[in-house]
Simulated scan of single mutants.
Amino acid sequence: MNLFFFFYVYLMSIISLILIRSHLFLCLVSLEFMVLFFLFLLIYYCLYFGNSNFYLFVYVMTFYVCEGVLGLSVMVHMIRFHGNDYINSMFLW
């Protein structure tokens, strides 16, 4: 695979995070997409250079799963108390 592809996808996920800021769910999907392609890039480099240490993948996947669970729990909490997932309604008193 071309390294330019990974940077292009990562850049597109950052741009989508900047442009789509109204819903919390879409922001979380953009963040998950960024983390996923960072993980793919890490796997690509470790396999390309012949490093056989896969413990780093376990640590990164653990943080990835924890980030996803925390994001979804924040979204469920926000929908229960505010009624929607708009980011602007979260900052109103």
Rank of each mutant, 00 (worst) to 15 (best):
V35D: 01
C46I: 00
T62I: 14
L26N: 05
L31G: 02
L41T: 01
M34V: 09
L3V: 07
S13E: 01
Y55R: 11
F91S: 06
V65M: 09
Y8W: 10
S22N: 13
H82W: 07
T62C: 12
S89F: 10
H77F: 14
F91L: 06
F4M: 15
F38V: 03
L17H: 02
Y48K: 06
Y86I: 07
E67S: 08
L28C: 11
Y64Q: 02
I87E: 02
S89V: 15
Y59S: 07
V74A: 08
L19T: 13
F33K: 03
F5C: 12
F4D: 13
L26D: 06
V29H: 02
M75H: 08
L72E: 05
R80N: 10
I43F: 03
V9K: 01
L47N: 11
Y8E: 15
C27S: 12
M90D: 13
N84A: 13
F81S: 15
Y44Q: 07
F57P: 00
L3D: 06
L56V: 04
F57T: 01
L3T: 07
L42H: 06
M78G: 12
R21L: 00
V76F: 10
V65L: 12
L39S: 00
H23T: 07
L42N: 12
L17E: 00
M90E: 14
I14W: 00
V9I: 11
T62K: 05
N53Q: 06
W93T: 15
F38W: 05
M61P: 10
L26H: 06
F38T: 04
S89P: 02
M34Q: 12
C27K: 12
V69C: 01
V76L: 06
Y64K: 02
S30H: 00
E67I: 08
Y86W: 12
L19H: 14
L31P: 01
M12V: 12
T62R: 04
Y59W: 13
W93S: 15
I15L: 07
I14N: 00
C46F: 03
M78T: 14
M90T: 13
V60H: 04
L36M: 09
F6H: 05
L70E: 11
L72K: 03
L31E: 03
F63T: 04
M12E: 14
G83Y: 01
I18R: 06
F49A: 08
Y48A: 11
D85V: 13
F7I: 00
M1E: 07
Y64M: 02
F37M: 04
E67N: 08
F6T: 02
Y8G: 10
L47H: 08
F25S: 06
S16Y: 08
E32W: 01
L39F: 04
H82S: 09
Y8L: 15
I20D: 13
